[in-house]
Simulated scan of single mutants.
Amino acid sequence: MIDWLSIERGNAPLILAFPHVGSDLADVAAQFRSPWLARRDADWWVDRLYAFAADRGATLIRTTISRSVIDLNRDPSGASLYPGQATTALCPTTTFDGDPLYAAAPPDEAEIARRRDRWFTPYHDALEAEIARLRALHPHIVLYDAHSIRSHVPRLFDDELPQFNIGTDGGATCDTALESAVAALCAASGHSHVVNGRFRGGWTTRHYGRPEQGVQAIQMELAMRGYLTEPGEPTPANWPAPIDPDPVILPTLRQIIAACIDFAKGRP
């Protein structure tokens, strides 16, 4: 039993992974110069937004550990997923906006290795085990990596981020038909969307997406304005904002989850 890792098992051919919904700073909290800054970039409330998927038989995997402690969606080697573009590291030293996270020296290689062993490896061992369990039941499964981010982060992207950001690493991590089906639902929603734009899929999508082996992986990065009211400037007094009681994008997300299950069952 791992107290920081939650697995809600279902038998449908779909896994939803939530690597960034946690805000627990664990045993490194005292090292951060601001606990609020260290929690600010969480994918706030995304697991609540998709909670309905459990009723469809999906498996939900979430962690309580903050991405500022260790980012479970980065290459464990430390290699950048977006060479030449601003991003954050396996153990981030800055926020999305470039604010320094640490009061003194950032984690050294030994500390990064400790965090990788303590949190990264068990999370991905659990994810691999769920993939194997469901592959034993179904010839094809979909791994849906669920994320969100503020609509405006100038250091990471220009202007306003599209509402739906679909990542398949240029079509390498899932079948074209699945990518097209999800994109069509986003287009029909009336909200903006992009396929393989600024967010092409993180390490989880790229590592596990093997459509020829029955594992279809897709990342969805949501602009937060679709399910909460974003302040002009986040402060400790207004952030995180509460989740909307009736998010405008929820009907589309329900359609997307249904489409992923149907595709895996052979009914694209």
Rank of each mutant, 00 (worst) to 15 (best):
E233S: 12
A183R: 14
G201M: 01
A136R: 14
H147T: 01
G232I: 06
A241L: 11
G190Y: 14
W203H: 13
D125V: 09
E130N: 05
F157G: 00
E130D: 10
D169M: 15
P139M: 07
V194K: 01
R198G: 02
A146D: 11
E230K: 04
N238P: 10
E179N: 11
P122F: 11
A184I: 05
C186M: 04
Y123N: 00
G202R: 12
V182Q: 03
A132R: 14
D175K: 05
T205N: 12
I141N: 01
E221H: 05
G214V: 11
L143Q: 00
A241R: 07
I218M: 08
T176E: 13
P154S: 09
R225K: 11
N165C: 15
Y144H: 14
L156I: 12
A126P: 09
L185A: 02
H207M: 10
P162R: 11
A146Q: 14
P240I: 08
T173F: 06
E233A: 13
T168K: 08
P154K: 10
C186L: 06
G197R: 03
A177C: 11
G214Y: 07
L137C: 08
I243Y: 07
P162T: 06
T204W: 11
I149W: 02
A132S: 11
L156A: 09
A241I: 09
E160L: 15
E130F: 07
F164T: 02
H147S: 01
F157R: 03
A136V: 02
H193E: 07
G214K: 10
